[in-house]
């Protein structure tokens, strides 16, 4: 099972995860008594990168309208800042005593903290982006709920005009999201559901048109036509609910990640 939720996050964090593992190994190897080198310059580079990341993070929080992001992201930023401070402390301690065990432990703790904090930060933003996609899906669901009250061609034309841009946006964003996911089953489910929605939508419009035509002729079959229309709207709604459900799934198990 993949550890990182999306390919973008994976590309950023996997190298860090590998380096933290390597650091732990180096620490274990160094327990035979090797001195740690002067880490002032590389630690300073980490601190500078963290300062810039935190700046961008704070600016993201400021400009976002997402209350959950505003609530969750500051903690991730504090985590990264605290981790950078640990690295600085470790570097100072190792300058005084290159064999210091507490300093080495601090170094590993700091590196781990950078990994965890950056991961939290990226996930926080990623979740915010997912919430935006879900809002768009819900807008389509709201339109589908209105389908059964459309009884004239004029209303149908307006319905199609309103629904089409939303549906196009959902299609584009869910498709992009499915390509980003690392979890194969989630990816396949999103693709399958999206294909169903794309297939069903013209059929639904057609069924709504047929209902309106039959209604105009005052035929008995209008009940059947309405049933058919409602069935198709219901099917589309089910697929969208499944898309929303899968979008909210996360890839990794907390314990496995740790």
């Amino acid at each position: 099972m993949p550890v990182f939720h999306t390919k973008t996050i994976e590309s950023i964090l996997e190298p860090v995860a590998q380096q933290v593992s390597r650091l732990v190994i180096l620490h274990e190897e160094a327990e035979d008594g090797n001195a740690m080198p002067d880490l002032e310059k590389p630690v300073l580079a980490v601190s500078r990168a963290v300062v810039n990341l935190v700046k961008v993070g704070r600016s993201t929080i400021e400009s976002s309208e997402d209350s959950l992001l505003k609530q969750d992201m500051p903690a991730a930023l504090l985590r990264v800042e605290a981790a950078a401070r640990l690295l600085e402390e470790a570097s100072s301690m190792l300058k005084v005593d290159p064999y210091s065990q507490p300093a080495r432990k601090k170094l590993i703790e700091g590196a781990r903290g950078i990994l965890q904090g950056t991961s939290s930060l990226l996930l926080c933003f990623d979740e915010s982006e997912v919430r935006k996609i879900i809002r768009e899906c819900k807008t389509v669901l709201d339109y589908l709920a209105v389908a059964e009250v459309i009884e004239t061609m004029e209303d149908l034309i307006q319905f199609v005009k309103d629904l089409s841009p939303c549906l196009t946006k959902v299609s584009r964003e869910v498709d992009h999201r499915s390509q980003e996911l690392t979890h194969q089953v989630h990816r396949e489910t999103l693709t399958r559901c999206l294909d169903s929605v794309k297939t069903l939508s013209p059929i639904l419009i057609c069924s709504m048109k047929i209902f309106i035509q039959i209604l105009r002729q005052h035929c008995r079959e209008s009940d059947e036509a309405a049933e058919n229309r409602n069935y198709l709207a219901g099917r589309m709604s089910d697929e969208l609910h499944e898309i929303i459900r899968v979008l909210q799934l996360t890839t990794y198990d907390e314990d496995e990640w740790d």
Binding site: I12, P15, L23, P37, A45
Partner: peptide, 29 residues
């Protein structure tokens, strides 16, 4: 929000690269 995401991803990558350099320094020396 591609620009915001791009910004965050770029700076996270820089942090990631700096950690790589740090561990690389330890290993080399």
């Amino acid at each position: 929000d591609p620009p915001a995401w791009q910004d965050l991803a770029t700076h996270s990558k820089k942090v990631s690269d700096s950690i790589k350099s740090l561990v690389g320094s330890i290993k080399d020396k």
